[in-house]
């Protein structure tokens, strides 16, 4: 049976059946590495992030990179036409991806991206939201929870004031955004399970 890699951070879902598992993995890793580096560069620009301990910077990035990438690349999921653009530029319909073995994660990603895009956030609001996603004091392995918590609170306050200023008649937007945080956690968990399954196979 053919193998597919239905992650849009891949250049294409097709996997060359002649390549070894290690080669497939290395090629995949090569395609998502620039996006991960972008997240790190983004994190470095969050005021206060570089003042956290090196250990906590790494822990936050390890735990949160996938969630930041989901927000950053939400526009790759075309809800109306039910398709996904892969990093190689090619679009694939949800039905085609289903036949390649995509499951609940893809459906959940669509639900999430649709709701996020419907909020109509500006680029600045989206960036601040990504900073809030990344700087979460309840990630595992954080050694200085108080420092991360203090930075998280500052970022949440900044996000609230930006949203309130930009959308004075839509007070629910801020609440809706905060409610996206547990949704992202859940996507992250589903994604980790799929990665494990991929590595095992």
């Amino acid at each position: 049976s053919r193998m597919y890699l239905v992650c849009p951070m891949n250049m294409s879902p097709q996997v060359d059946p002649h390549k070894s598992g290690q080669d497939v993995w290395e090629e995949f890793s090569h395609s998502f590495t620039p996006a991960v580096r972008e997240v790190v560069e983004f994190a470095k620009k969050i005021p206060g992030f570089r003042e956290l301990s090196q250990h906590d910077q790494v822990s936050l990035l390890k735990a949160g990179t996938f969630e930041v990438l989901v927000v950053r690349f939400a526009s790759l999921f075309h809800v109306k036409e039910r398709s996904v653009t892969f990093l190689g530029g090619q679009k694939y319909s949800v039905d085609a991806l289903r036949t390649m073995g995509s499951g609940d994660l893809l459906s959940s990603m669509f639900d999430f991206c649709e709701k996020l895009m419907n909020l109509g956030l500006s680029e600045e609001e989206m960036s601040l939201f990504m900073a809030v996603v990344l700087v979460s004091a309840d990630r595992s392995g954080i050694e200085n929870v108080n420092s991360v918590e203090a930075l998280q609170e500052t970022l949440i306050r900044a996000l609230r004031s930006l949203i309130t200023r930009n959308h004075p008649n839509e007070s629910a937007i801020f609440t809706k955004l905060l409610l996206k945080l547990p949704d992202l956690r859940s996507l992250n968990n589903m994604h980790s399970e799929q990665l494990l399954a991929f590595k095992v196979h």
Partner: peptide, 27 residues
């Protein structure tokens, strides 16, 4: 399983990007 980021090689990419790639700088 508890640390998918390490399994992926993510931690290595993150550390290198955070610290700055020494080799690139030397070039």
């Amino acid at each position: 399983f508890n640390d998918p980021a390490s399994n992926l090689g993510l931690e290595d990419i993150i550390r290198k990007a955070l610290m700055g790639n020494l080799e690139e700088r030397q070039e």
